[in-house]
Design a protein around this nucleic acid. Structure first.
Length: 696
DNA sequence: GAGCACTGC
């Protein structure tokens, strides 16, 4: 297949700077003169900071909110907290908080800042992520943390009084936590005029971010009289140090992006100077297919295409294989990494000079009517496309090959992706806001409002769990306890009930296992062996009890990695289970849940699961020969997933943990129940329907 | 008898 590349006319402004290492605070709408210093030497010397000398200090002093725009590597997260600290914003017990959406980023950025400031990480500069707190009270002045941790901190300190400046990084990614946090910070600002916010975002989102923090005119006039900080946000642009990336488009739309990606890689390999290639596809299937196709093509071509190292990359890949992509490319060789979106933000590969962008990714969509989340392949946004292209310009000028036309990019591609909050189930999010005293969820000032249907559905679910009362207020103590448990509310409710049923030790194990991806090693090749090994642990009650058997075996082996290897159990996953379980034990003790084992009585364990997941009850269709179930609530047709220990067993009544929809709706992690437990666990939920016993 | 974008508390 021949492709005709057309150089693009798009010039992403922040990718134009080829000087490298230059930090420049560009002119912004309200600083007409434009402050700045732009020499690499001066930056290296760590400029002394005088009051108002740098624009960021001036802006933070005079404006309640500053929005910083700039690409990765521009120094926002490393320089700005330092400036603030040196200018005294962290004095008198006040701390500067900087949030990141990912744990790894928190660790990486905090250690870089500590190093640049010449302090030990955990002292003046520290970080907090789940399971890890590297801060010292009274000593730590700059604290990095995930936005999720900051939200949890608000449950004890709703106004975040210990922080004088809060910087929210990567706000353009619009994760659920970031959006909730931004909404809450806007509220806090009204109560704490002295608080300063710094929102760091990519260019395209800056304007909408700015208008979000724009307070009403009347309010501004009132504040103007007090001579307080200006409440209208200011935008500051920081030039990045990324190298120029030349964009190429296809002249005609491609029909098969896998095939097209493979030909593009070969084209680059034949015609372009050395440098590694990063290909963005959508998922494991695509990637495996592309790796195979590329390998075959290389073999067919013989000599001319030798010297290629082809590596897949996705989160489900065993850790050892994932590490391979970080190995430096040997001289004279070229590395091709074929990746999911994981390489767009979560992982950074050094040495990439060429990017091939399929223009697609897998995205989650939520249907509040059916209450089902789906994963679908969908076109990416312009923002994503730019982020992908930027991956080619980290070490030297690069090239990005887009497998779509320029016309498509300019006219059809949406500017930004749909924020996660508009694509998700909202139960966790709603209970968190309730716990923070936000009663009017529908009237909450979101950076992007979720659909009313999704909010109503979340309220319904929480009401049915007994976590919200008739006035949609948190119940006491159940509602507050569920909000304190850092897991999905249905899981939290299950834990709460286990306290009364006397099986909390077992249930927190199940809760921990359900909240990680999978405890089994991923094994597409060795599926049969895995299935056989699973039988060793299989329990007739279902998957949850099977998990308990695996956990028991793991403990009896002395938490041995050898044991895991022999039993197709993922050792790293089990370590994580232990960590989550430990956190749940501590939380349970704090909120008054009795930790007790039921000593093998699986009846109460199943009852506790029912108490959290009664909404997922299903009944086997009478005379069904193919294992067809119907959900009690929506009468949807569902089937037990072949990976379940109850596959082909088909008990009359089951409860599932989650649904996965492909050609059919499959129930994953299934347990058999007695229908009388449903009315027992949730009389409200089932009272207006025919009693389950009548159905059969 | 089939499948899992990616985070996070």
């Amino acid at each position: 297949m021949s492709q005709f590349w057309k150089p693009g006319t798009e010039k992403p402004r922040l990718l134009d700077d080829e000087e490298g290492g230059v930090l420049f605070f560009g002119a912004s709408p309200s600083t007409s003169s434009g402050y700045g210093y732009s020499s690499m030497e001066r930056q290296k010397q760590r400029l002394p900071v005088y009051k108002y000398r740098t624009p960021i200090l001036y802006l933070v002093e005079t404006h309640a909110t500053t929005i910083i725009v700039g690409e990765t590597g521009s120094g926002k997260t490393t320089q700005i907290p330092q400036y603030l600290k040196e200018a005294g914003w962290a004095d008198g017990g006040r701390v500067i908080a900087c949030t990141q959406p990912r744990r790894l980023a928190v660790q990486a950025v905090s250690s870089r800042v500590a190093e640049e400031m010449g302090v030990k990480l955990g002292e003046e500069v520290g970080y907090t992520i789940r399971f890890e707190d590297l801060t010292k009270n009274g000593v730590t002045m700059i604290k990095f943390l995930t936005d999720g941790v900051l939200l949890r901190e608000m449950m004890d300190d709703p106004l975040l009084t210990k922080y004088s400046v809060i910087m929210v990084d990567e706000a353009h990614e619009r994760s659920i936590s970031t959006d909730i946090l931004l909404g809450l910070l806007k509220k806090i600002q009204r109560r704490r005029p002295e608080l300063r916010l710094i929102i760091s975002s990519a260019t395209i989102e800056a304007k909408s971010m700015s208008s979000f923090f724009q307070t009403s005119k009347r309010r501004r006039e009132m504040e103007g009289k007090n001579l307080g900080p200006r409440m209208d946000p200011v935008i500051l642009s920081v030039e990045g140090r990324g190298f120029n990336v030349q964009i190429h488009y296809v002249e005609e739309p491609v029909s098969n992006y896998i095939q097209s990606a493979v030909s593009t890689v070969l084209l680059v390999h034949d015609q372009e100077p050395m440098g590694d290639i990063l290909v963005f596809l959508t998922g494991q299937d695509d990637i495996d297919a592309a790796v195979q196709l590329l390998t075959e093509e290389v073999q067919n071509r013989g000599k001319s295409s030798s010297g290629l190292t082809i590596l897949p990359l996705y989160s489900g890949l065993p850790r050892a294989e994932q590490e391979l992509v970080f190995a430096p490319t040997p001289r004279g060789k070229r590395k091709v990494v074929i990746s999911t979106n994981i390489a767009e933000t979560s992982l950074t590969l050094e040495g990439i000079v060429y990017v091939v962008d399929s223009g697609f990714s897998k995205q989650r969509f939520y249907n509040p009517i059916s209450d089902i989340e789906n994963l679908v392949v969908a076109p990416i946004s312009k923002a994503s496309a730019r982020q992908r292209a930027g991956r080619a310009g980290r070490v030297r000028p690069g090239k990005c090959y887009r497998l779509y036309t320029e016309e498509y990019f300019v006219n059809e591609m949406s500017a930004e992706g749909i924020p996660e909050i508009q694509r998700s189930n909202l139960v966790s999010c709603v209970i968190q806001l309730k716990a923070l005293g936000i009663d009017n969820i529908l009237g909450f000032d979101w950076p992007a409002s979720p659909s009313p249907e999704a909010m109503v559905r979340a309220l319904e679910v929480l009401y049915s769990l007994g976590v919200l009362d008739d006035d949609a207020k948190l119940t006491s103590p159940a509602g507050f306890q569920v909000a304190e448990i850092p897991l999905d509310p249905m899981i939290a409710k299950m834990i709460l009930s286990s306290s009364q049923l006397g099986c909390s030790e077992e249930i927190i194990t199940i809760a921990a296992i359900l909240s990680i991806q999978s405890i089994w090693v991923s094994s597409r090749g060795a599926q049969k062996e895995l299935d056989e090994v699973k039988l060793r642990f299989a329990a007739s009650e279902g998957d949850h009890v099977t998990f308990l058997n695996v956990y028991k075996g793991f403990l009896q082996s002395g938490k041995s990695s050898q044991w895991c290897y022999k039993n197709f159990v993922n050792y790293h996953a089990m370590k994580k289970v232990l960590e989550i379980r430990e956190q749940l034990r501590r939380t349970a003790q704090r909120i008054g849940i009795v930790l007790k084992s039921c000593e093998g009585d699986m009846l109460v364990v199943r009852k506790a699961i029912t108490a959290g997941f009664f909404a997922n009850a299903c009944h086997l269709e009478a005379y069904s020969h193919n294992g067809k179930y119907k959900t009690i609530r929506g009468s949807q047709e569902v089937y037990i997933h072949p990976s379940s220990v109850l596959f082909r067993v088909n008990p009359k009544w089951v409860i599932y943990h989650s649904l996965v929809s492909t050609d059919k709706q499959y129930m994953r992690n299934v347990i058999s129940i007695d229908p009388s437990w449903l009315t027992e666990a949730a009389p409200h939920f089932y009272q207006h329907q025919r009693p389950p016993s009548m159905l059969h």
